[in-house]
Amino acid sequence: MSPLPPAVSAAVAAALGAAPADAVPVGGGSINHAARVTLADGRTVFVKHHPGAPPGAFAAEAHGLAWLAAAGALRTPEVLGVGEEPGARFLALEWIAPATPVDRRGAGATPAERFGRGLAALHRYGAPSFGLDRDNTIGPLPQSNTPCDTWAAFLAERRLLPLTRMAVDGGGLGPATARAIEALAGRLPDLCGPPEPPARLHGDLWSGNAILDADGGPVILDPAVHGGHREVDLAMMRLFGGFPPATFAAYAEDHPLAPGHEDRVELFQLHPLLVHVVLFGGGYAASVERVVRRYA
């Protein structure tokens, strides 16, 4: 019998045309439950579910995966079904048997280079605007993607300032830090580097969201997509490590970065650091304060 909750199991059966016969829990991040599910017709699929998932969150993730796949640059799991009924919200994806993660020890240069070149192609494919035609989430947090005319305006108005308000309301940041972030937001046009067209961003590209399939090909998962500055994905990749130098070298060779990009890494890490303050508090507030002091 499937260990999926009965409501989720029934919803998956209705969407995929076959009932879950067995399910084995697998890693699905820190928010949702996830399982490798064998269906009665023999197919194996990945099912992510959570009874308290925000309405529309799984549909937004499915849209994001399709939006990334449209670039033809990096593999994403095929979306098989989405359930939005209360108590039975789920996302069913193609099961991709993983090899090893994008090498975390610096070996395996060929997969690392393939990932770097694929990411360059994804970014170069572009986006219609700084933003997206729909909102989505990053983890469990709502993420407004209403387009802005410039990257600096989008970063300030859709990312840094809303998250700062959440962090203050949740007790993770004090008012003095919030005022400093507001002042920094006003200086972003001078800090974000030379103008670039909107890139097609994954939006939450830490090492856990990049794996290798059984053939050694790179796969990206769990996006928080939008059109934005391409250095954002690269800054997120550096924040918690996990990507070898060969990945960044291959990217830069294929899609050279603008002058001063090294000076913008921490600036573009401020958004994910604020996300972590809202979700986890702790020492992330000190990291935010350090970054704000550097640029303010």
Rank of each mutant, 00 (worst) to 15 (best):
L4W: 05
V8Q: 02
S9W: 00
A15S: 14
G17D: 06
G17F: 02
A18V: 04
A21M: 03
D22H: 11
D22G: 12
A23F: 08
V26P: 07
G29F: 09
I31A: 10
R36M: 09
A40R: 05
D41W: 03
G42T: 08
H49A: 10
A53M: 11
P54M: 04
P55Y: 04
L65I: 08
A70T: 05
A73F: 10
T76P: 03
P77F: 03
E78I: 05
L80T: 09
G81I: 01
V82W: 00
G83P: 07
P86N: 11
A88G: 08
R89Q: 15
F90V: 07
L93M: 13
W95E: 12
A99N: 13
R105F: 10
G106V: 04
A107G: 14
G108H: 11
A109M: 00
A112S: 15
A112V: 07
A127Q: 07
A127G: 11
P128H: 02
P128S: 08
P128M: 03
S129W: 00
D133W: 02
S144R: 15
D149I: 00
A152V: 05
A152D: 09
A153I: 00
A153V: 00
F154W: 03
L155M: 14
R159E: 12
L160M: 09
L160S: 07
L161C: 01
P162S: 12
T164K: 03
R165Q: 15
R165S: 14
G170V: 02
G172C: 12
L173D: 12
A176Q: 15
T177E: 13
P189L: 06
L191Q: 08
P194I: 13
E196F: 04
A199V: 02
R200Y: 01
A214T: 06
A214G: 11
D215C: 12
D215Y: 05
P218L: 12
P218F: 09
P218E: 13
V219A: 12
G228K: 05
D233G: 06
D233F: 07
M236S: 01
R238I: 07
R238K: 14
G241V: 04
F248Q: 02
E253N: 09
P256F: 14
P256Y: 13
L257G: 10
L257E: 12
A258S: 15
E262P: 03
R264G: 08
V265T: 12
E266N: 07
G281F: 01
G283S: 06
Y284V: 03
A285T: 10
V288G: 03
E289I: 00
R294V: 00
R294M: 03
R294L: 09
Y295V: 00
